[in-house]
Design a binder for these strands. Structure first.
Lengths: 207, 207
DNA sequence: TAGATTGTTAATCGATTAACAATC
DNA sequence: TAGATTGTTAATCGATTAACAATC
């Protein structure tokens, strides 16, 4: 198994498989099949089997997949078998919502640092975390060996923040600002912009 | 131009082009090229030209694209040349953040209705909007001819909410609940789950 | 004019799917 | 055993890219 040869599009589907399997498990199921999983996800069973085959053999002919062990395997592959500390930059409405969100920790991530550049916010608490100044961000994340960060600043600040995060050692950035970020090689960036999705769907509405 | 023949993956890139063009315009530029646009987006210039060619001819040899008219064209294609009223269901932390977000309206959408099933929330105001009961949702969105909705409920309620939205005439759903929704044909669904993106990136971090 | 850039064609590249032997 | 489902192969399908004539 050579990691670099696995298509990124395949990697992108693994978290969906993991999420669906976890839900099946919560619903009390012990086994599932590529067919059942595919139906739930709107993906062909062949594609699921093909995707998994990049990483090993996880099923049994006739019976399908043991849900618990496939979850374990996928968590290992995705490095979701630990809890990554995450820095969150930009504590506006969205930043608050992300800081309060309880769904990160049991899926491999936990927000451990909050940053903002607004002096009136610095020092405030959310849960047990204190909002720190953006000025100390780079040093602080380096010291804490943070590899994962989320940007929830306005668009104008996002690229500058991203540059500082990368300088501080961050390797993965989830960007909520409505702008495409540029980063050096080796740094992963994913973008979340609700309007992009809304516009994509509005195309198909004929009115 | 036959709409149904245009690949969805092409449609999915048009909002990115539109966003980048708007930013260029705000920065004072009048013209751009497929090369410049591609560099900003991390996409090849050939792909941008090919994508646009599905919808017509928008550029000039030698000079590239007039930004203002390409923005106009893309807004028309994406139906972002109007302001779609949007229903938002589930007014927790994320719902509040979305309701307060000021970035929708100038990009084609505005939240006009809020719903929650928690009796303590119903009747509360956010900006000038009143949170309504989920019980009246279906009738209310039908009356207002709402075609676009956002779900920000917990995972357990999301499918039920989606079914009701579709019954009420909604054709496009942006789902923030961490679950894959099933809908009838003709209804578009897009999912936003930050953990999916984080896991996808964590795969590449070797630690 | 000379340089730049488009829109389009054809080739390449990669992803998805159908089919089935293997086997639980 | 009979039925079900895997993992894998080969074929199909679709998307991306390179190249260039056209032309501003």
């Amino acid at each position: 198994m050579v990691r670099s040869e696995i298509p990124d599009i395949v990697v992108g589907r693994l978290p969906l498989y993991l999420r669906a399997l976890t839900r099946l498990q919560n619903d009390g199921a012990d086994f599932t099949s590529s067919h059942e999983l595919g139906q739930r996800l709107g993906i062909s069973s062949a594609q699921i089997r093909k995707d998994l085959s990049h990483f090993g053999e996880f099923g049994k002919q006739g019976t399908g997949y043991d849900i618990a062990s496939l979850i374990d395997a996928l968590q290992g592959i995705l490095h979701a078998d630990r809890v990554w500390p995450v820095a969150l930059v930009g504590i506006g409405d969205l930043g608050h919502a992300l800081a309060h969100y309880g769904g990160f920790t049991n899926r491999g991530f936990t927000i451990t640092q909050l940053f903002d550049k607004d002096p009136t916010k610095i020092g405030q608490r959310i849960n047990s975390l204190v909002i720190e100044s953006a000025d100390v961000m780079q040093a602080s994340i380096r010291k804490a060996r943070i590899k994962v960060a989320m940007i929830a600043t306005p668009a104008d600040s996002a690229q500058i923040v991203a540059d500082a995060l990368v300088q501080g050692g961050v390797l993965a950035i989830l960007n909520y600002a409505p702008i495409t970020l540029t980063t050096s090689n080796g740094v992963r960036v994913q973008h979340i912009d609700p309007v992009i999705h809304l516009q994509r769907m509005a195309y198909y509405i004929n009115e």
